[in-house]
């Protein structure tokens, strides 16, 4: 597979970098403080391809902390609230759309 860094980066709107945390696999987002958070609301939002590339580069560099980092679209509401930009990302942040067999 081509490394995400060699892929051409094209973004069509506000974007974040997301990945899974290495030790337990949960969904995380890259923050502006060069760390990770399990809350989308903490994510650093980028708006240009260059910023996206830079954010992805520092994310991928943390190979111990996170796996499979990639750029994902978000919607930024007028209030500033950040929402996932497509169904896949919605499911990653909000969880499965069905009732789990055993309620949490």
């Amino acid at each position: 597979m081509t490394s995400p860094l060699q892929q051409k980066i094209k973004i069509t709107g506000p974007s974040v970098v997301t990945a899974n945390r290495t030790w337990d696999g949960i969904v995380i987002w890259r923050t502006a403080a060069q760390g990770w958070s399990a809350e989308l609301s903490d994510a650093a939002v980028v708006r240009t391809a260059d910023d996206a590339r830079a954010l992805l580069a520092e994310s991928v560099a943390d190979d111990v902390g996170a796996i499979g980092a990639y750029i994902a679209p978000v919607d930024v509401r007028d209030t500033g609230t950040v929402k996932p930009g497509n169904l896949r990302e919605h499911i990653r942040s909000a969880g499965v759309t069905i009732d789990l067999p055993v309620p949490a």
């Binding site: 899974n20 337990d24 696999g25 969904v27 896949r88 990653r92």
Partner: peptide, 13 residues
């Protein structure tokens, strides 16, 4: 990990 049946899905391994 794949040789031991461990994949990465959306939310977790």
């Amino acid at each position: 990990r794949l040789q031991n049946g461990v994949y990465l899905q959306l939310h977790a391994y």
